[in-house]
């Protein structure tokens, strides 16, 4: 793992835009294809918005990772919000407690190579995703 870590605040709609921009720049750097760049930026947008909307904010950590010859991008979205009581339900397409389409978590999971959701009521939420260059 290289030391290329970036930590970005998620406290406003403008911060979500900034997260998208930074993820795009690093996705280009690690050599993701255009489609894979688009997928990982879209997942980042969903997860950053969730931290803002459901937890009142949080932070994004973006790092370049290496696995032998492959490079990838690992993103974590961390908040200290209310947490998610039922993870399986939250990952179900179309399920929302807000006014969204309920596709953010389930959709993000499909758009990346690795997806890890850690959350419990009162404990906040951390979602970590990784996309590998092919």
């Amino acid at each position: 793992m290289s030391g290329d870590g970036h930590l970005l605040p998620i406290a406003s709609n403008a911060d979500v835009v900034a997260v998208r921009r930074q993820v795009r720049a690093l996705a280009v750097d690690v050599g993701l294809s255009l489609v894979d760049q688009t997928k990982v930026v879209t997942a980042a947008s969903e997860l950053a918005r969730n931290a803002l909307v459901y937890a009142g904010g949080g932070r994004a950590s973006i790092e370049i990772v290496e696995n032998g010859v492959r490079k990838g991008l690992r993103l974590s979205f961390i908040d200290e919000g209310p947490g998610i009581p039922d993870l399986a339900l939250a990952l179900t397409d179309g399920w929302t407690t807000g006014s969204g389409l309920g596709l953010g978590l389930g959709g993000s999971r499909r758009l990346v190579d690795e997806f890890d959701l850690i959350s419990a009521p009162g404990k906040g939420t951390t979602v970590t995703v990784t996309k590998w260059a092919r």
Binding site: V35, T38, T42, L101, L103, S108
Partner: peptide, 14 residues
């Protein structure tokens, strides 16, 4: 719509 956007949208579930 860009091709990469179309591919991503479908996978997102939209």
């Amino acid at each position: 719509m860009r091709p990469a956007v179309a591919i991503t949208l479908v996978e997102l579930g939209l």
